[in-house]
Nucleic acid binder design. Structure first.
Length: 296
DNA sequence: AAGGGAGCCTGGCGGC
DNA sequence: TGCCGCCAGGCTCCCT
């Protein structure tokens, strides 16, 4: 479920319960997800207290009080469930009632907070997600975070920044916006939506929206605004829920009802007076949805 | 050197 | 009903 707004929604769902909690036990139901779990994963986590749950791009960062931070990525299909203590509590934490045990539950974090037990379960059918452990001091030099580009929610993100990033680029706008080394956190859905909102074709070479002298054109400004807005609105809506993914508390995000182009091939373009039809094309192996009439 | 494609996995859906 | 191919929100690696 995971582009930036979904990860942020997960973070907001888990943080109140997890921050300040102590990790009693970590249960790994397999030795790897996309990558192997680090050897010391359990030993470093168990007994530690969670200081903060934050986010960078699509990564969840769980800072512990022992100098380590857990880096987590949800891949394509990862999700968390938060389960409050139930009747089946034991001295070692508690176990899921049979009805709550799901296929592909790969990691269970048994937590204790304010004398009650919590269970945080990570489920991931496709196992493209992963978890890693780094020294908090070197967090931003770690291999996953070091290369990341601008946070599209940040104050510095504007048309000038886009101009600097896209200047001279031959890659299509779609690919440039998906490049995590430039802007970090956008995925297939929100890129399609942002391009539609800004009236720009996903096929247009990224460098061509930049002024000849390298400064920000009107198009750069409009694109920056569209990206900021679509991300902000999606976070506000609790992200998008596709294929029945749930949020940590079991509820559903509803931004998918606001999609104007994503997965809407054949629909009329929603832009007033446009009259175009949404089309699906494939760019670098992935679906792009756009309106050929008003996106130029 | 940047850009495109395959590969990693499982599950759900539509077509026959 | 069953089987098959295609598709899916991400990322890394390898090739040109």
């Amino acid at each position: 479920m995971p582009e930036l707004p979904e990860v942020e929604t997960v973070r907001r769902g888990l943080a109140p319960a997890m921050e300040g909690a102590r990790i009693r036990q970590v249960q790994l139901n397999r030795e790897n997800l996309r990558f192997p779990f680090p050897d010391n994963f359990g030993s470093v986590l168990e007994g530690a207290r969670i200081k903060a749950l934050s986010r960078r791009a699509k990564y969840l960062l769980c800072e512990l009080d022992n100098g380590h931070t857990v880096i987590m990525h949800l891949g394509m299909s990862g999700s968390f469930r938060l389960i409050e203590e139930k009747a089946v509590s034991t001295p070692g934490g508690f176990h899921l009632p049979k009805s709550d045990i799901a296929k592909h539950d790969h990691v269970k974090f048994h937590l204790e907070k304010d004398h009650s037990n919590l269970l945080v379960v990570y489920n991931d059918p496709r196992r493209f997600g992963f978890m890693d452990l780094v020294q908090t001091e070197q967090l931003y030099e770690s291999r996953f975070l070091a290369e990341l580009g601008a946070e599209p929610t940040g104050n510095a993100f504007d048309g000038n920044m886009i101009a600097a990033m896209f200047s001279g680029k031959a890659a299509p706008l779609k690919a440039a916006l998906l490049d995590q080394r430039l802007i970090a956190g956008l995925g297939n859905i929100y890129v399609c939506e942002a391009l539609w909102r800004s009236g720009l074709s996903p096929r247009k070479p990224a460098g061509r929206i930049v002024n000849r002298n390298g400064s920000a054109s009107k198009k750069c400004d409009m694109l920056a605004v569209a990206v900021r807005e679509v991300i902000a609105e999606a976070i506000e809506a609790g992200g998008s829920t596709l294929r029945d993914h749930r949020l940590a508390d079991g509820s559903l995000g509803y931004f998918q009802h606001s999609f104007q182009v994503y997965d809407r091939e054949g629909d009329d373009c929603a832009k007033p007076g446009c009259g175009g039809t949404i089309r699906r094309i494939v760019q670098s192996g992935r679906s792009t949805f756009y309106c050929p009439k008003c996106q130029r």
